[in-house]
């Protein structure tokens, strides 16, 4: 992250706390996971979690589609609502701190916010809250689905993780080769 952005982010987060209760935005909230808005946001978040490098990233592995399908088909309405609420709160915070929608922020500002969101569920307060409300922090759900969608994708088997369709052998104890990747499945 550039130094200037970091300073701005720091200042903004103080401002964010101060102005936390001033709900201002008139921008449309996400109501539906199948909407383009939801898709765009999820897709960018997933790519930040597992970006394209010399190997494919979440987006080119189709993880965005998978996350939405999994949320729609494998989660209850209540879990989906909590997830959408989490996304909206995340967007709202971004606007109140940086004055613009998340998708319009620079990559480095986006990263600051995502890293915060990533740390949040590990915090004591958040852990208490999710236990009391019996609700998973949206970023935890997002990250879990991103990892599942990505590491079990065909794209991830091209150099990211190791995969053999038919191993043909079991060797219980081998030397770890340099550059050996984790198995895609066990």
């Amino acid at each position: 992250m550039k130094r200037r952005d970091a300073l701005r982010a720091g200042a903004a987060s103080v401002l964010g706390i101060l102005s936390g209760c001033r709900s201002s935005s008139s921008e449309a909230e996400i109501t539906d996971l199948s909407s383009p808005q939801a898709h765009d946001l999820i897709s960018v978040l997933a790519e930040i979690i597992l970006p394209e490098t010399d190997t494919p990233g979440a987006k080119s592995a189709g993880v965005d589609q998978f996350i939405i399908r999994a949320l729609n088909d494998c989660h209850t309405a209540r879990e989906r609502a909590a997830f959408v609420q989490g996304l909206n709160e995340f967007q709202k915070q971004c606007r109140s701190r940086f004055g613009m929608p998340f998708l319009q922020c620079s990559a480095s500002l986006q990263l600051v916010l995502v890293e915060e969101a990533d740390r949040e569920p590990f915090g004591l307060w958040s852990r208490i809250k999710s236990r009391v409300l019996r609700r998973t922090h949206f970023f935890r759900t997002l990250k879990r689905l991103t990892a599942l969608g990505y590491f079990t994708s065909r794209e991830a088997t091209t150099g990211v993780v190791a995969y053999e369709q038919i191993p043909g052998r079991w060797t219980g104890c081998v030397e770890l080769k340099t550059g050996q990747k984790t198995w895609a499945s066990e």
Partner: peptide, 9 residues
């Protein structure tokens, strides 16, 4: 740390 396995038992 330097050991692994091959195949899916």
């Amino acid at each position: 740390p330097d050991r692994y396995y091959e195949g899916r038992r």
